[in-house]
Structure formats: structure tokens, C-alpha cells
């Protein structure tokens, strides 16, 4: 009996020993993992996660940023939905998306296709096409403001030579938004060019060869092979265009400041003005939180569409 008990005893102690060893190992692993992630996570929480929650919180207050906050519930959001300038800004943001999807992305595709065309000087074309994307948006804004200058600007001088009248590119309310959109197209098309370049490289040469044997011409090859296989890239580009529209600020701030008469106001410039020029921090937070919510909704919709598509195993 005694031996039996000691046997059980020793077995038990063995088990607890190994258990505590495992849990100690587990604890050590947890500590190691935490130490690796901590620096990034602390900075990220402080400057990204906390601010989003704080923005939501501030949006329920009337607040100039200095004196005490006054809780006003959803009043900021009600004001915002009745605020014409908010809707103008949102409309202009949608214009940016349109310009991206219907001009920038196709232009990027054309540039990328040209880089695979049977012509000389590809390196030069590739190099120059990409330059606009490298310059700071501040520099781009200042440069194009000069190009658009009604008297000394290169564009008006150019159209004068062709016999046209000067145009007030940035100070005419209905024209200004298109002038800025043009600069956005100029600066960001190269980005899509790079995305498409990577997509085209991934298409196997054999498919084209097979199509050639079947007697397909250049246009048919494009429509039947290139375009369908680039569909995922086009989808990615469109997501980036929508999110990019909500991120845009610099060019508008530098070139027009949202003017004339809010003609080029976008959510970014409007939020900035409300918060840091008029010191309506509460209202500014409400606009800012709507920007966040819009980005979130877009990403969630697109992610779930993507999920659905993958489930079906269909990439178009």
C-alpha cells in the first residue's frame, strides 16, 4: 500500500512539476512576445487608437479647445447634416474619387502598357512618368499655382499662343475644382502605373503566345487576357482611390485653401478650418469622425465583397 501511495504521490508531483514548467514556459513566451510588440504598440495606441476614440468623444461637445467642454449630445452631427458647406465638401471628395477611377487609373494603365510596348527609350519614359509622384504635395501645389497663374502662368501663356482668352483657373468657382483635380491626376497617375506594371509582369508570356497562335490581334489580347487578369489590380486601385480621397488635403490647402467661396472645399480642409482656424474643436471632431466612419464603411464593404468573391472562387 505504502509503495502504491508513494507511487501515486510521485506521479502527482511529477505532473504538477511539468504543469508548472509548462505554465512558466508559457509565461516566458507571453513576456517575450509582449516585449517584442510593446514599443510599436504603445506608440500606435497613443497616436492612432486613442485619438480616434478621443475624436468621437470630443464630437459630443461644444468646445473651443481651451475653455471647458460643454456636452451637447448629437448637436454637432445635426448641425453638420444641415450644413451646406459640409455637403459641398463631401461632393468634392466624391469628385476626387471619380477623377481617380475614370481618369487616373486608366491613365496609369495606359502608362504601364506603354512601358511594355515595342518602343525604344522605355527607361526614360518610366523614369520621367514617375517623377510627379516623388515630389512633395506642397511643392507640387506651389508649382501648379504658378503654372495656373492668370498672367505669368505657363498654361495661360500657352493658350494665348493658340489664340484663346486667359482663364482664371483657380479663382473661378466652377473651374477651380477641375483645375485641382487635374493636378491630382498629374501627381497620382504614376502610382497606379506602378501597380499595373507589377500586375502586368505577373501575367505569363505563354498566354499571349497561345492567343497569338489562335490568331488574336493586339486589341483582342488586351480585352481577353490583360484586362481580365488585371481585374484584381483595378479593384485594389479603386479602394486606394476612395480611401485616398478621404486622405487628401495638402494640394487643396496649398492651391486654393478650399476657396473660392468653398468651391474646392473638401472634408479635410473643412475639418482643418473648423478645428484650427475657427477653433470649433467639437464640430471639427464631428467632421473628422465622419471621415473616419466613411473610410471604415468603405473598407468593410469592400472586404466583405472580397470575401464573398473568394468564396465563389471568382476573381472578376
Amino acid at each position: 500500500m505504502t509503495t502504491d501511495i508513494t507511487l501515486i504521490d510521485s506521479m502527482e508531483s511529477k505532473e504538477t512539476k511539468s504543469k508548472s514548467k509548462i505554465s512558466r514556459q508559457k509565461l516566458r513566451k507571453t513576456i517575450t512576445i509582449s516585449l517584442f510588440i510593446a514599443p510599436a504598440f504603445i506608440v500606435y495606441s497613443l497616436y492612432v487608437i486613442y485619438p480616434i476614440l478621443a475624436t468621437l468623444n470630443y464630437s459630443f461637445f461644444d468646445w473651443d479647445g481651451v475653455s471647458d467642454k460643454v456636452f451637447i449630445g448629437l448637436d454637432n452631427y445635426i448641425t453638420m447634416f444641415n450644413d451646406d458647406i459640409f455637403w459641398v465638401s463631401l461632393k468634392n471628395n466624391i469628385w476626387i474619387v471619380f477623377a481617380s477611377v475614370f481618369i487616373q487609373i486608366p491613365l496609369g494603365l495606359v502608362m504601364a502598357l506603354l512601358l511594355f510596348a515595342p518602343i525604344r527609350g522605355i527607361r526614360l519614359f518610366n523614369g520621367v512618368y514617375f517623377i510627379p509622384f516623388l515630389m512633395s504635395t506642397v511643392a507640387v501645389g506651389i508649382l501648379w499655382r504658378l503654372m495656373y497663374d492668370p498672367i505669368n502662368g505657363a498654361i495661360n501663356q500657352g493658350i494665348n499662343l493658340l489664340g484663346f482668352e486667359n482663364i482664371a483657373w483657380l479663382s473661378e468657382q466652377n473651374i477651380a475644382i477641375f483645375s485641382v483635380l487635374m493636378v491630382i491626376v498629374w501627381q497620382f497617375s504614376p502610382f497606379y502605373m506602378i501597380l499595373f506594371k507589377a500586375g502586368i509582369v505577373g501575367i505569363s508570356e505563354e498566354m499571349y503566345e497561345a492567343a497569338e497562335i489562335d490568331g488574336a490581334n493586339y486589341f483582342q489580347k488586351f480585352m481577353k487576357i490583360t484586362l481580365p487578369l488585371l481585374a484584381p489590380t483595378i479593384v485594389t486601385s479603386s479602394i486606394l482611390a476612395i480611401v485616398g480621397s478621404l486622405k487628401s488635403f495638402d494640394l487643396f490647402y496649398i492651391m486654393t485653401g478650399g476657396g473660392p467661396n468653398h468651391g474646392t472645399e473638401i472634408l479635410g480642409t473643412y475639418m482643418y478650418k473648423q478645428a484650427f482656424v475657427n477653433y470649433n474643436m467639437g464640430y471639427g471632431s464631428a467632421v473628422a469622425f465622419i471621415m473616419f466612419a466613411l473610410a471604415l464603411v468603405v473598407v468593410v464593404i469592400i472586404q466583405s465583397l472580397d470575401h464573398y468573391r473568394k468564396k465563389k472562387g471568382d476573381y472578376l
Partner: peptide, 16 residues
């Protein structure tokens, strides 16, 4: 964070 509009964090970061 890649999809986040910076403006959604500006006021709190300013206060912070």
C-alpha cells in the same frame, strides 16, 4: 491604420 484618414486623429494629437 493604412486606411485611416489622418484628420480623424488631428485634434487629440494636437491636445496630447
Amino acid at each position: 491604420g493604412m486606411m485611416l484618414p489622418i484628420h480623424a486623429t488631428l485634434i487629440p494629437i494636437f491636445k496630447l
